[in-house]
Simulated assay, not measured.
Amino acid sequence: MADDKVKTGTGLVGETARGVSRRVLLKSAAVLGATTVAAPYYVKRAFASSGELNILCWTDELPEPVLADFKDATGITVTKTPFSSNEEQINKMQATLGQGFDLCMPSFNRAKDFQFLEVLKPFDESKVDLSAYLPSLLKASSDLWTWDGLYHLPHVWGTEAMTWNNEANKLSYAESSYGLLWDPEYVGKVQMRTYSGLLGLGLWMDATGKLPTNRMLDSYKDEATMRKIYDELTAYAIEHKNQIRQFWDSTDSIQAGFRENGCTIGQTWDGPVKAMIKNGEPYTFMAAKEGALTWMDGFALSAAAQNVDEVYAFLSYIGKPEVAGKIATSSNYNAVIKGADDYVPAADKALFRSAYPENALDKLWWYPPAPAWFNSVRNQYAERFQAA
């Protein structure tokens, strides 16, 4: 256990999600009516059944050491099927109607997609210790994922923002802007993801008055407004596409972009870069002054789940503060469980502080719930950008 009492994302999220709190977050644990789970009972039941658990998961959010410890504690073997985007996950669940998976890991703002697909079933809340979760993050799930029951439980949260090679760039928070990715100084040295790169471009153009969009929230109003905004963004991005060295789509491709493919700056997830920094590599991950793009991933129960006792044994296990702290440390994302911050090493806390200096935590840009039409239209613009 670290003795550094400075908080990281787990300790600060209730304070730093003020913007999203007004929309979807704040609710007390008492209102949620949490019932404490009897973990040993469910572990015992799991021993009596298959001893297997199949999870469709993000590539780096279930660290192998944690799964090995879980097997030692319960006898349950977790089999992971990795994916690198919500679209890939949705396609897999839709293709099999959930068969072959007990749990999947949707991002919290994709509730409408999964409700439409009808490939999930609600959790039995009497078998989950809801009081273990940070109330603001649990409510982010419960507000969007409750129809005939609760369909989503938080797992980790993180951001996408600015990364640069310290040997090639000397930058401060005042200079950390999505606009740098379009500066001729960095031509041919940039990596980004297509659709979130367009979002970052929009936040910069909004902040500079080039394209006022209410911090890009106007693009969620209606399809006509969204298309008007994205027509301009995509035209600008295509005109300046020589800035881009590569488009990334996963943890591995982010790291390869910097290590092997000549990128010196980019807009990336936090976890892959924090892993590089902890490995001694000369990189900085920092919130853009326009606001770090903030997401939260969680667990949902497949309608075709076969190993249900194992599911609840697993949720009980990762709901322990010491386990949640280990997940945060190993994955380099932020925990959602109360008390997990006490089990995060001082070095990781220092990384968190350097990633979110000054007022960066007050400016987090939480992905809002997307209207039914939004993601398919957004993907059309992303594909146009990539193919240009």
Rank of each mutant, 00 (worst) to 15 (best):
F285Q: 07
Q115Y: 14
E167M: 00
R378G: 04
T213E: 02
M162T: 08
W373N: 04
F83L: 03
N166Y: 02
L134M: 06
L138Y: 13
P368E: 10
K5E: 13
L153H: 07
E175R: 02
L199N: 05
N86Q: 15
D231S: 00
Y317W: 10
V273C: 01
F314H: 03
V273A: 03
F299Q: 10
S136T: 14
Y236G: 01
M286S: 02
G51Q: 09
S85K: 02
W373H: 08
C57G: 14
T264F: 12
V190K: 07
F258T: 09
L217Y: 14
A17N: 13
P321Y: 13
A174Q: 14
P371D: 03
E358D: 15
L171V: 15
Y186H: 12
Y381K: 05
A328F: 11
M296F: 01
T81M: 00
M192K: 15
A48M: 12
I327C: 05
M1W: 11
A328M: 04
T294R: 11
A38R: 14
Y173I: 01
T159F: 15
D206E: 00
T213V: 04
E167P: 04
L67H: 07
A304Y: 09
T294F: 13
L62C: 07
Y220W: 12
L301W: 12
P154T: 00
G14E: 09
N379W: 15
